[in-house]
Design a binder for these strands. Structure first.
Lengths: 160, 160
DNA sequence: CTTGACCTTCCCATTATGGGAAGGAGCATA
DNA sequence: TATGCTCCTTCCCATAATGGGAAGGTCAAG
């Protein structure tokens, strides 16, 4: 099987197959005399594995670990599970960050007229988040919960 | 103010300040005779604006638009709002993708013993998602809702 | 033998950020 | 003044994963 056929069969582009080979993620296949790569069904299987893992958000290095575990018939499932669980944690961290951003922005957008006037709480917040701390003076207790909910006045994320 | 001081005041590294200048995101400041950059308070203000927008997940190009709107005193708030709303949508799309991944993986991890045995549904799924469609034959109706909920057997994401 | 589809390698671009080298500038202290 | 420390300058490289495209070789069908 040529690289193009392997690409179709695995849903991994030829470009990426070559790349994965170059970084040692997958093993280099044999070549024809014309230097064409020749893939076996097993190789396609591995490529699909990689594809699936990438779709689940694993980094290349994590995929490398998973592939090693997959090949190691005497692995402990605990090792696989810990890789997966750590990734779930990473995902959840990222989700929380994005949600904080979305909440803040949604809140700001809600308070923006969105018409022809230049007045804009969104720009005001970007220019000076502290100044938008008290957009409506008075009755702070009623808003307490909502403000906590939108986290508008924090940095939304603490990037690593 | 030197670049180091501007960096501290804006919480943007000197490295990034130079970069933002190089791509025309911020205007080049005047220089001393020794070629040192000299920043005014306004510049720091703009840098804080950029920082805040970046923290909210806007791309550099989006920040560029927002800065232009900020400087344009006759902007329409609708224009700002639309940039913000589009970004909220992007964030929500991304969140949904990550959640789909997390759901799938959590489900797989839950079904994995996580002990010394090599048996592992996680690897099994990576190797062949279709095969893990019916891990427990029979009573499919009872699982219908749960399966829909975890999306395990779809690609989890449809990357752009 | 030509044509078109495929393969090869190699280089470049992307996004946003950091690291680090080599050399100049500014300031304080011995 | 000379030494030294901290800051500044520019320039190059690296990251993560992927795509684009050029230049040139190969294969199969007509």
């Amino acid at each position: 099987m040529n690289i193009g056929q392997a690409a179709k069969a695995s849903n991994v582009t030829a470009k990426m197959i070559r790349y994965y080979e170059s970084i040692g993620l997958i093993t280099a296949p044999i070549r024809t005399q014309a230097n064409y790569r020749v893939y076996a069904n097993e190789d396609v299987h591995a490529l699909r594995f990689v594809k699936r893992a990438r779709n689940l958000g694993f980094s290349i290095e994590e995929v490398r670990e998973l592939l090693a575990l997959w090949r190691d018939k005497s692995r402990a499932s605990a090792d696989v599970k810990s890789v997966a669980m750590k990734h779930v944690q990473d995902l959840e961290t990222k989700i929380a960050e994005l949600q904080a951003m979305a909440r803040t922005l949604s809140h700001l957008a809600r308070t923006c007229h969105g018409d022809g006037r230049p007045d804009c709480p969104i720009l005001a917040d970007l220019a000076d988040p502290a100044a938008s701390l008290a957009p409506v003076p008075g009755k702070p207790k009623r808003k307490a919960r909502q403000e906590a909910d939108c986290a508008c006045h924090e940095d939304a994320t603490l990037p690593a």
